[in-house]
């Protein structure tokens, strides 16, 4: 027990929590934006892979780190557009289309990576984002390492939470996005484009998801590996339900998740001899299912989620 307390009081633990949470923050914000407009985007897992690969490759080809971030976002937007076309104007099954986009984005990424680098035994590395070094702030005790020595992408993620919250809660656009996810007929009656709003939300949300992938190859690691996304996208989908589609709660969920993950890594080194390591590796997935089970009944679903809408057809 004293050990756990010691971990919880250490700054490295809190710094790691925020770092592990960063890709999830991008992912939950992206998924939340899509779902608020009424479209479930199960393309998330593949879009993570595509963002990780495209961002990394852009940097590797010499476009610079922020060039990589931009390329990742555009790649995500592209795959998001496919999902948007299939599910919004065509009104096809969001489940199957999303899985299709995941399979497609993953295989495109793997094929492109293998075609660009046919025979590499160890993946080539890039110079990733470094921790920030802000005068005074980064040197503060505790707060410095936890917040001000994170990489720029972590800050971008936190800014995106604010942006998504602001747009959804404080702008007419946000009102329209939420309305289109609750009652598309009413939005149509006001002369707004249901298709435009939904497709825009899905494309923007997918760009955000891809940034979560880009964080993995450009900040957490410095190379692209097959299978590196490892279910993070699916965890985000679970976290959005857990957060009942509220940006603030979604941030909290991602941070809690990061904290649990950071804690299990540290506990693993202490009790690794008694408990097999895999028990700890399972923890994030088990935790996600648990979060889903306790939250599912009281979650406030966007009422038109999963429901296709056709113009001129009630």
């Amino acid at each position: 027990m004293a050990d756990i307390l010691q971990i919880l009081l250490s700054e490295s633990f809190w710094a790691a929590s925020l770092r592990i949470a960063t890709p999830l923050i991008f992912g939950v914000m992206g998924a939340l934006l899509c779902e608020k407009s009424g479209v479930l985007n199960l393309g998330i897992e593949g879009i993570f892979v595509a963002g990780a690969m495209a961002g990394w490759m852009a940097v590797w080809l010499g476009l610079g780190l922020w060039g990589g971030v931009l390329v990742a976002a555009l790649t995500g937007a592209f795959f998001g557009l496919i999902h948007a076309i299939l599910t919004v104007p065509l009104g096809l099954s969001q489940h199957v289309s999303g899985l299709g986009v995941t399979l497609f984005a993953t295989s495109v990424s793997y094929f492109a990576y293998r075609t660009a680098l046919p025979n590499v035994s160890s993946p080539p590395r890039i110079e990733p984002f470094r921790g920030l070094d802000i005068p005074v702030l980064s040197d503060l005790p505790f707060v410095g390492p936890v917040f001000f020595q994170q990489t720029a992408l972590t800050w971008l993620a936190l800014i995106m939470v604010g942006l998504v919250w602001y747009v959804l809660e404080r702008t007419p656009l946000g009102v329209a996005i939420k309305a289109v996810g609750d009652n598309p007929d009413s939005v149509d009656a006001q002369g707004l484009s249901v298709y435009g709003l939904r497709m825009g939300a899905v494309v923007a949300g997918s760009a955000l998801m891809a940034l979560g992938g880009a964080f993995l190859t450009m900040s957490a690691f410095d190379a692209f590996f097959f299978g590196m996304v490892n279910g993070r996208g699916w965890i985000c989908i679970a976290l959005v339900i857990f957060a009942s589609w509220k940006p603030g709660k979604a941030l909290l969920g991602a941070l809690l998740f990061g904290a649990f993950d950071a804690l299990q890594v540290r506990l693993q080194t202490q009790v690794g001899a008694v408990v097999p390591g895999q028990v700890f590796l399972m923890a994030p997935y088990v935790l996600s299912i648990f979060a889903l089970v306790i939250a599912a009944r009281r979650a406030e679903y966007p009422r038109a989620l999963l429901k296709p809408w056709f113009k001129g057809q009630r």
Partner: peptide, 23 residues
Amino acid sequence: RFGADEVVTTLLLNFIILIFLQM
């Protein structure tokens, strides 16, 4: 029983079972 979306739970179970298999 709980209304937990089976898409997400079955997807997550895939990862859990694969780790269990390694164990």
